[in-house]
Amino acid sequence: MTHTTRTTHEVIDRYNAAFRLHDPTLLEDLISDECVIEDTGPAPEGARHDGGRACLARWSQLAGSTDLEFSPEPADILGDLAVAPWILRWGTGEDDCVRGVNLIRVRDGRIVEARGYVKSS
């Protein structure tokens, strides 16, 4: 049986589905052991998460939260890099949301790096 590596587009689709569906199990084999996340907060640098376990724990916490509504927008795929914009909502008020973008690098069908940025007032 031949092993097929996921494309960057396939990885991003599954990553987004994990957050939209609140199903962190979809993330389990998408994250490389060498993964590094630079989170959107706290400002100005954001928290850094090193290693596959730390990255999976962070994203699983967010993806599993039914208090959050994640709405991905179409991503631009540039080889191994995805520029993936999104909207995150945590309530029903006009100000209960933020727009952001993740820069996600994929290698051998797994996420190796993600940097998150948000718009601020």
Rank of each mutant, 00 (worst) to 15 (best):
T2G: 05
T2S: 11
H3Y: 09
H3W: 09
H3D: 11
R6F: 06
T7G: 05
H9G: 05
H9R: 12
E10Y: 05
E10Q: 13
E10W: 02
V11S: 01
R14D: 10
R14Q: 14
Y15Q: 07
Y15H: 13
N16K: 02
A17S: 02
A18H: 09
L21S: 13
L21F: 07
D23E: 14
D23S: 12
P24W: 07
P24K: 08
T25Y: 04
T25N: 09
L26E: 11
L27H: 00
L27C: 02
D29W: 00
D29R: 00
D29C: 00
I31D: 06
S32W: 10
D33W: 03
D33P: 08
V36K: 08
V36H: 08
V36D: 05
I37Q: 10
I37H: 11
I37V: 14
E38D: 08
D39W: 10
D39H: 12
T40Y: 09
G41N: 08
P42A: 06
P42V: 04
A43T: 12
P44S: 00
P44I: 00
G46T: 05
A47Q: 14
R48M: 12
R48V: 15
H49T: 04
H49E: 09
H49L: 10
H49V: 07
G51P: 02
G52L: 06
A54H: 07
C55H: 00
C55R: 00
C55I: 01
L56G: 01
L56N: 02
A57P: 01
A57L: 01
A57S: 08
R58M: 06
W59R: 02
S60Y: 03
Q61E: 15
A63I: 01
A63N: 01
D67V: 13
L68R: 01
F70G: 04
F70L: 03
S71T: 15
S71L: 14
A75R: 04
D76F: 06
I77V: 08
I77F: 03
L78I: 10
L78V: 11
G79F: 05
A82R: 04
A82H: 08
V83G: 06
V83A: 09
A84T: 04
A84I: 03
A84F: 01
P85I: 00
P85F: 00
P85A: 00
I87Q: 15
I87H: 12
I87S: 13
L88Y: 05
L88Q: 13
W90A: 07
W90T: 09
T92C: 05
T92F: 07
G93Y: 11
E94C: 08
E94G: 13
E94Q: 13
D95E: 15
D95K: 15
D96T: 12
C97V: 14
V98P: 06
R99S: 12
N102G: 14
N102T: 14
N102M: 12
I104L: 11
I104H: 06
I104E: 05
R105T: 15
R105A: 14
R105W: 11
R105F: 09
D108Y: 03
G109H: 03
R110L: 05
R110S: 09
I111P: 02
I111M: 09
E113Q: 12
A114D: 08
A114C: 14
A114T: 13
R115E: 10
R115C: 10
G116Y: 11
G116K: 07
Y117N: 03
Y117M: 11
V118F: 10
V118W: 13
S121I: 12
S121K: 14
S121W: 15
